[in-house]
Write a protein that binds this DNA or RNA. Sequence first.
RNA 1: GCUGCCAUCGUCUAGCGGUUCAGGACACCGCCCUCUCAAGGCGGAGAUCACGGGUUCAAAUCCCGUUGGCAGCGCCA
Length: 494
Amino acid sequence: MGYIRVRFAPSPTGDLHIGGVRTALFNWLFAKNKGGKFILRIEDTDEARSTEESVKIILDAMKWLELNWDEGPGSENPKYSPYCQIERKKQGVYQKYADKLVAKGLAYPCYCVPEEVDDMRKKARANKLPPKYDGRCSRLTTEQRKQKESEGKKAVVRFKMPSLGTTVLNDLIKGRVEFDNSLLDDFVIMKTSGIPTYNFACVVDDYLMEITHVLRGDDHISNTPRQIHIYNALDWKVPEFAHMSMILGPDGVRLSKRHGHTSVLEYRKEGYLQEALINYLALLGWSTEDSRQVFKIEELKQEFSIERCGISPSIFDPVKLLWLNGEKIRSKSPQQVYELFIDWLKCTDNEKLTEGWDVELLKKALVLERDKIKLLKDIPSLVDFFFTKEVDYREEAVRKILLSEKSKDSAKLVLIESAVRLPNQHDFSAESLEHYARNLAVEKNIKAGQVFHPIRVAISGRTQGPGLFQMMEVMGKEEVVRRINAAINKFFQQ
RNA sequence: GCUGCCAUCGUCUAGCGGUUCAGGACACCGCCCUCUCAAGGCGGAGAUCACGGGUUCAAAUCCCGUUGGCAGCGCCA
């Protein structure tokens, strides 16, 4: 196999969603694995639905995911540019080849209006036949064509499909697939607007951009015989095809907006790491022999192969993605988690959440809480108590630990003793604090937990959190004592 | 309706004719660790390999059929 060029060719008609990312990812991984080129092409031939906004969203999403393209918008290559189909259309790229096909007698102008064609299809369907255009305009004489033209009728260009035989596709993933040519009709390659249709633009561009492998969702597989015939008609080499299985929603239907949370940028806002999303998506439809689950991006690049792509569709499991995100966060150093968090704050415009927070304290807090983080957006609620002036005492924590009949006496005792003794605790390290607490328990003849829990609630307001003594060390003596006194005043004031 | 694709624990998957009364991961349950919550460790439950026929000494693995799911059938991509 020589030099490899693959492409991701989204149409800018909305957000980049999970299914699209998977397609982009597998192309990208394939290119990286083979040392080939990954091209990004914008297929904006749908005049009605394509938007500039959507192009921007797609580019942003690709950048966030670090699915960098070797060629595409912003990375033009004079040999292949431009990378937007409407731009290419303006240069007459497609018209030229449509004319060539007409000249060869392999395509023809068709004057039928959409309503006529619809009718034909409806009738065919009613007769339990595949809905097809009947090819009537291919039989027009030159005079008849001139007549139509002089009447000012607009024509589309239709490609003549052979009606006999079969078209064989040797798909890299699906294997050999045969299509009965008689089931396919003469399809439109140029609209009346002069804009090419998908099937045509795609082939022309893949040829001109020297795409060697077309890796796409298997919802495109039935387009493939049409495309193959265009390649043949133009005497172009047919690229390799690999059709990946679809990603389905929990209901088993192809993932779409309806399932919610399908837009990539939403995942960023939720606080997913790009590498978690990438890793997860790689697992959908691809696997290694040892069924490994966690991969670094580098490892994916090294190990990816089309041969190990699965053929059956897979259901998107947000729960597993969440686990993987936690896994990725746990694999980061505290400094990295801090940086990730800061980036997340910026990208979600949430900087006010941490206003007035001491950076060093935040970093230390992250060391203690890292293993608990599933999403970056969880971080504020996990560490905010370190930064509050007024501790937010959770009602349930107070009731259970400080004021319950069973424990209120010991809790009061522990806090008052601590308020007195802790200021004299010279070594405020976690280790030494633990000694202090355990000794206090022995001295007062109560259980260690009866010392630990009240202090925890007093300084954090909650029953859950980091290890108590690590937490105290990080907060510092002054603050711990201040909070204990505040708690005494609030709950045990005579 | 027609055509195509697909079918292993709830989910993602390993398996490419015998070493598998099917292995891993998520989720779930239990135990351990432990000052709480996590994380981690250990263990458990969970799949008549969709069904029915073949081929073979031997099939989750090959072939055929059935059923079910999905996709496509546009001057959408």
